[in-house]
Design a protein around this nucleic acid. Structure first.
Lengths: 171, 171
DNA sequence: TCCGATTGCATAGATTTCTAAGTATTATTA
DNA sequence: TAATAATACTTAGAAATCTATGCAATCGGA
C-alpha cells in the first residue's frame, strides 16, 4: 500500500498559478502541526518499508499481522484471530485464504464446536518466525535512529493514550 | 476503513485452547512496545473517527485529504495535488472523479498546457471549509485529552523524525 | 524543424480493507 | 423440546489504494 512518496508540502508556484484560501492564513489548522497528519505520515512510511522488506520472504502486509499473532499463540479460531489482529472477520477470511494457498497455515474444523475453524501454522511458517521478527525489528530500529530513548518512550505513551481516548468514543 | 474494533491483546483461553510459540517468551518483540504497532493503532483510531464525523457531511476519507489541500491552495494540477496529498496519481484520478460527481470540484483543462487539468473547488466545497476544519480539529482535540502539552510536542517531534528517517531509506 | 524524451493524466488489474447480509451450528428459553 | 437467539464463519459488493502500462501534449537537442 503505502507508496514511496515524499510529500511536498511547500508550495512551489509556477506559471499555472494557484489561489489561496480566502480566510486569511492558509490553514487555521496546519497539517504539519496536526497529530493526525503526523501519525498518518509515520504510519505510511512504516508500513511501506515493512511491506518492502517482508516481500523478500513472499509475505504480504495483509498476512503479516496474522502470522505475528499466530507465532505468539497458535491454533486460534478465526474470530479470536480477528480480535487479536484488530481486523474484521471478512478481512481475516481473505488473508487466511491467501495464507493457506501460500502454505503458511492450515484450517481445521474444531471437533467440539463445528462452527469454529482453528488456524494452525505450518512448519514452514514456524521456521520463518525468527528471521521475520528480525526484519520487523530492523524497521523499528531504523525509524528510531537518532531519537532520544526518553523521547521515544514519551511518544509511545502518548500514542497509546490517544488510541485509548479515541477508542472510548463511539462517534 | 478503520473499524470500531478494540484490539484484544490479552489471551483469554477457553476450552478450545491455543498453543504458545516454542521460543521461550511469547514475543521477542512484543507488539504493545513496538512503535510500529502503536502508530498503526493510533492511525486506525484517528482515521475511523474522522471518517465517521465527516460522513455526516457526505465526505469520505478518500476525498478529505484532497479537499484539505485545495482549501489551502485552489486550482492545483492533478499531479501537484497528488504530491501535496501524498498519494499516487491513479488514486487522485479516482478521488477527483467522485468529488466531481459530488459537486465538490470542477476540472478545467489548462489553456497554456493542454496536458494539465486544473482542479477548482466549487462554491459548495468552499462553504464547507470552516465547518469541516472544525470537525477535524475536534478529532485531534479529543485524541489529546488528558495528555500533557509538552508530551504531545515531544510525540509530534518523534513522529516527524521517524517519518524523515524512513523516507531516507529506499528499501 | 523534427524526433525522441519527458510530462500529465487515464486505464487496467490487483490487493486490502470495510459493511451488510447469508448460512450453519450451538445455546437459551418458554 | 421446539422456537428463538446467539455465535462463527462466509459471501457479496463497494471503496481506497497500489503497480504497471498507455496515450496525448510538450520540450529539447541534433
Amino acid at each position: 500500500m503505502a507508496p514511496g512518496i515524499k510529500k511536498q508540502t511547500t508550495a512551489r508556484k509556477g506559471a499555472g498559478e494557484a489561489r489561496q484560501g480566502t480566510n486569511g492564513s492558509r490553514f487555521e489548522f496546519p497539517p504539519a502541526e496536526s497529530s493526525g497528519y503526523l501519525v498518518r505520515d509515520a504510519h505510511r512510511a512504516l508500513q511501506w518499508l515493512l511491506g518492502k522488506r517482508i516481500a523478500d520472504y513472499g509475505i504480504t502486509r495483509g498476512q503479516w499481522y496474522f502470522l505475528r499473532a499466530l507465532w505468539g499463540e497458535d491454533g486460534l479460531s478465526q474470530r479470536a484471530l480477528s480480535a487479536r489482529v484488530g481486523m474484521m472477520e471478512p478481512t481475516t477470511v481473505i488473508a487466511l485464504r491467501s495464507m493457506e494457498k501460500a502454505g503458511l497455515i492450515r484450517r481445521v474444523r474444531s471437533a467440539e464446536d463445528k462452527r469454529k475453524a482453528e488456524v494452525w501454522l505450518t512448519p514452514k511458517a514456524k521456521r520463518m518466525r525468527g528471521e521475520l521478527l528480525k526484519v520487523a525489528r530492523s524497521v523499528t530500529v531504523e525509524a528510531e535512529v537518532g531519537i532520544a530513548p526518553d523521547d521515544i518512550r514519551v511518544a509511545q505513551r502518548v500514542l497509546a493514550q490517544m488510541t485509548a481516548n479515541l477508542d472510548r468514543i463511539k462517534r
